[in-house]
Design a protein around this nucleic acid. Sequence first.
DNA 1: CCAATCCCGAGTAAGTTGCTAGGAATTAAT
DNA 2: ATTAATTCCTAGCAACTTACTCGGGATTGG
Lengths: 150, 150
Amino acid sequence: MRISTRGEYGVRAMFDLAVHYGQGPIALKVIAERQAISEHYLEQLMGNLRKAGLVSSVRGAQGGYQLASAPEKIPVGDIIRTLEGPIAPMDCVEEDASAGCRQFERCATRVLWERLRDSMEQVLDTTTLETLIEEGMRLRAKDDSFMYHI
Amino acid sequence: MRISTRGEYGVRAMFDLAVHYGQGPIALKVIAERQAISEHYLEQLMGNLRKAGLVSSVRGAQGGYQLASAPEKIPVGDIIRTLEGPIAPMDCVEEDASAGCRQFERCATRVLWERLRDSMEQVLDTTTLETLIEEGMRLRAKDDSFMYHI
DNA sequence: CCAATCCCGAGTAAGTTGCTAGGAATTAAT
DNA sequence: ATTAATTCCTAGCAACTTACTCGGGATTGG
């Protein structure tokens, strides 16, 4: 039941872009350094996020990445779905649901996995990048050594 | 963010034992057949569940496994923790928390993972095997072809 | 032009998953 | 006492996933 580094790094990188939202494109190299993530690896993740329409990129010198929309418009769930696949503890309760389980509506444990999925989605879809920034500020207020990276 | 077959099979097997609670030990072979799970593989899972004190076993002919306590005393969370490890979307928010993240209290995204963990635990710890049986009965009422296995 | 930067596909070592194989120990039934 | 049924234990393994690295091509500001 772990999120892999794809989701973790993705959220961290997007949070970084959110903190610097409106300041023009930010080079991959900068994000990777600030967040202590392998540059080449992050590149792949950013490629996926771009294809999913969550970030836009500017090529060439002085280029980089920026959020495709404002931080309050980007739920963490969108990032996770892009990099980790559907949010579901089990294949049989994916949203499109087509996959597999022949017992379908009649399975007793299925109800459990549906509830688990719903509670996970509730958290991830109601938390936006803006939410994370606000909460980061609150942490910062309590502790001045607060850091945005890691 | 998937639960592996360990957790899935474990819950199914425990549900099976719950349905037959109070009827004496049930042979692994029977559970495995009813739930369509590889016998040898399930054996390993049952070994873990026994060591964790969730089931008791009777060796020798006519032996088998039974729940160590009543279905309403066994939350699904206990089964999952035994077979899948701590319920936490990220290492840094495991309950004992010792592991790793040096930024600890100051990390903005950490709050997110904590909330996700809490919502997952809430579902898994408030759902017991008895809950699953009750919900199974409700499904059965609607659809007479309801099956306990799978 | 050229340096910075994004874009893309291939390769890969280490770890995880979902089993299988084989046999030792225990016990009820005969 | 023997046998058959059953749990217990360890080892092995093929396929898959993860978390990268490598090498180069395409694009663009200065």
